[in-house]
């Protein structure tokens, strides 16, 4: 339905083939989160890999920073309709985390967990083969608390709530178990190109 009197913002030379349906570009980095912004000091930071309830390996901040670092330039898309192009990230690929624990992806599904109790589910195949990382830097600088620092998951091809802020572990699960927002009406997978915003989309 055309809205009477609405023409939209004059469009510049936007590369529209990179902007999923219903999204618009922003030139700043908005902040959205469900609770207070946690303050996590490096000495208290831990990252744990689990298979089901069983911990496989835990890294301290220094140990984690000693893992191979990878840079990624990606477009990101938030379910609240903003998108940013060419965002610059640096961190540890999920592949390299698994390699450091000497394991192959053990199950088809993963829950990412965060210091604030947040969780989100992602199929394991969407995290491996270079698709996702635990990011420690944004635009060349340590990741700010507001954006999930010291470390957040980055799964850039899914809506950005899947890129859990303040991440402190990955847990491999047998079944696809809904995370925090997925239990609260948001889509179980969250592909921006298929506009999978809410459960019923």
């Amino acid at each position: 339905m055309v809205t009477r009197g609405f023409t939209g913002r004059p469009k510049g030379a936007e590369p529209t083939n990179r902007i999923p349906p219903g999204q618009h570009l922003v030139d700043y980095f908005p902040v959205l989160s469900a609770g207070p912004t946690p303050r996590i000091e490096p000495e208290n930071w831990r990252f744990t890999l689990k298979v089901g309830p069983r911990p496989i390996k835990t890294w301290s901040w220094d140990e984690f920073n000693a893992l191979p670092m990878t840079k990624m330039v990606r477009d990101i898309h938030c379910v609240t309709t903003w998108s940013m192009l060419d965002t610059q990230w640096e961190g540890v690929l999920v592949d390299d985390i698994l390699a450091d624990a000497f394991i192959e992806p053990p199950t088809g599904f993963t829950l990412a967990h965060s210091f604030d109790g947040y969780s989100t589910n992602v199929p394991t195949a969407d995290l491996t083969t270079g698709k996702a990382m635990v990011a420690l830097k944004y635009a060349g600088k340590p990741l700010e608390r507001d954006h999930g620092g010291p470390a957040r998951l980055l799964v850039p091809h899914l809506y950005f709530w899947k890129s859990a802020k303040w991440v402190n572990g990955l847990q491999f699960t047998e079944r696809d178990e809904a995370g925090f927002w997925e239990l609260r009406g948001y889509h179980i997978y969250g592909d921006p190109w298929r506009e999978q915003r809410y459960t019923s989309d």
Binding site: P30, V31, L32, S33, A34, G35, P36, T37, P38, T80, W82, D116, G117, D146
Partner: peptide, 23 residues
């Protein structure tokens, strides 16, 4: 952020605090 930090400083536990940020 300012309000949440102030509430935590007053002794309220973080799990009791829900936020909505207008982006």
């Amino acid at each position: 952020n300012t309000a949440a930090d102030a509430v935590l400083a007053a002794g309220v536990h973080a799990t009791a605090v829900r936020t909505e940020r207008y982006g």
